[in-house]
Design a protein around this nucleic acid. Structure first.
Ligand SMILES: [Mn+2]
Ligand SMILES: [Mn+2]
Ligand SMILES: [Zn+2]
Ligand SMILES: [Zn+2]
Lengths: 146, 146
DNA sequence: TCTGTTATTGTAAAATGTTCCATTAAAGTA
DNA sequence: TACTTTAATGGAACATTTTACAATAACAGA
């Protein structure tokens, strides 16, 4: 797993290469996701940051904007639910897909080489240049079946 | 492919079995999706219906509600995009997944037995009761690569 | 460190999507 | 058909997400 310092350098380089600026707000959001290995809505992140950093001013719009930027830059990834909206997580872990429980909202992560390989073949078959893919298995987790 | 009359009967039966009512608005939306084999946003459908049926009153809220109902009833299915929101299509076709071009919005449909089978195995492995699954391959279509 | 340029910010407004509620319409019964 | 019950509707209120804009902070160069 990459260290936070390395990640920060990587982010700063990315910003510099695109004539973008490194701000307190952007750093806070990146750090929050680095330190909290779970899936969060923009609102989740906004509330937590306001609470833990009352001295630093931050607006909800900036959270939305920064998450979009981080996602475009492939630093975070998102999944969306039927109702609960979009949730973000740091995308540093090896690529994975999700099982989502519709009853309790639990998210299980998995990786399957066979599926990954098949996706590449399908893209090729349609002369499609794949830049990303997502797969969600929706249903009931073990507990919620009871 | 099922005829519209059969589909309508199926829908009416479903409504009856759930003490729901068959309304002009619900019929219009179902018919629109039956007659137009593509992917539409709720706004798309709302505009088209207002335009082609100026005599029948319909509200945007009803379109959202009806699409949700139809999706829960497994009559339509939806895919969501990065920006363009959620798009709906009639779910009568054999289950399939999607390739989405980020440049022109083109949607290609595909079905892959290997992936379907693997998904079942993964759900089983996590003692997960799968009720649905979606997979999206995002990238550039043949044309947009040029 | 000071200064000039420009991207980023927070706030407010706009746009999109969801929920509430009083009115209307569907559907069953006589 | 007339009557009764109850679900569905449109419009407005509300919530969430995106955008516009003027003020501000980052950063490069002197
Ligand atoms: Mn994940
Ligand atoms: Mn489709
Ligand atoms: Zn669960
Ligand atoms: Zn394309």
């Amino acid at each position: 797993m990459i260290s936070y310092e390395k990640l920060l350098e990587q982010f700063k380089t990315l910003l510099r290469n695109n004539q973008l600026k490194f701000t307190k707000q952007r750093e806070l959001i990146l750090k929050f996701l680095y330190e909290n290995d779970a899936h969060f809505t923009p609102e989740d992140i906004y509330m937590k940051l306001k609470q833990h950093h009352p001295n630093i001013k931050i607006g909800i719009a900036t959270v939305y904007r920064t998450l979009s930027l981080l996602e475009e830059s492939n630093i975070v990834s998102s999944i969306s639910f039927g109702s609960a909206g979009k949730k973000y997580e740091l995308g540093l872990k090896k690529h994975h897909d999700h099982l989502i429980c519709t009853a309790c909202g639990k998210i299980i992560e998995f990786f399957d080489e066979t599926i990954e390989e098949r996706q590449k073949q399908i893209a090729k078959q349609f002369n499609f240049h794949m830049t990303d893919h997502t797969m969600k298995i929706v249903g009931l987790c073990e507990k919620c079946q009871a």
